[in-house]
């Protein structure tokens, strides 16, 4: 099997879980408990996506954690997303020179 075929099969594998819900949603009313559950999914996903990945995101776990704290402070100060991303990269960049 060629690499191109593999990429095409993986395209289907990648699209399938994304596309399937399109066919279900709207067909039936979801109970309130399911909706409440769904509303917690983004928050749960954010937790899952942040940790433990952040420990291996940059050169050292310490840099990762300090970068995370810096981003959290900017987030609390309601700095727009775009600038949180740019400033956090700059912060870790500086960290790499001083420690």
């Amino acid at each position: 099997m060629s690499i191109l075929k593999l990429i095409l099969i993986l395209t289907v594998v990648n699209l399938l879980p994304r596309i399937l819900p399109v066919f279900f949603v709207g067909k039936f009313e979801l109970p309130d408990t399911v909706i409440t559950f769904l509303n917690y999914v983004p928050i749960a996903a954010l937790g899952v996506l942040i940790f433990p990945g952040v420990l291996t995101a940059v050169e050292t776990p310490t840099h990762g954690v300090l970068g995370a704290i810096f981003a959290a402070l900017l987030g609390i100060m309601r700095v727009p997303l775009f600038f949180v991303v740019v400033f956090s990269v700059a912060f870790v960049y500086l960290l790499m020179f001083i420690m």
Partner: peptide
């Protein structure tokens, strides 16, 4: 150094969204 430092970018995004 810059490529490594930008590894924090997605995490910064997630954290800012969570806060």
């Amino acid at each position: 150094t810059l490529v490594v430092a930008s590894g924090i970018a997605l995490y910064a995004l997630f954290i800012a969204l969570l806060m």
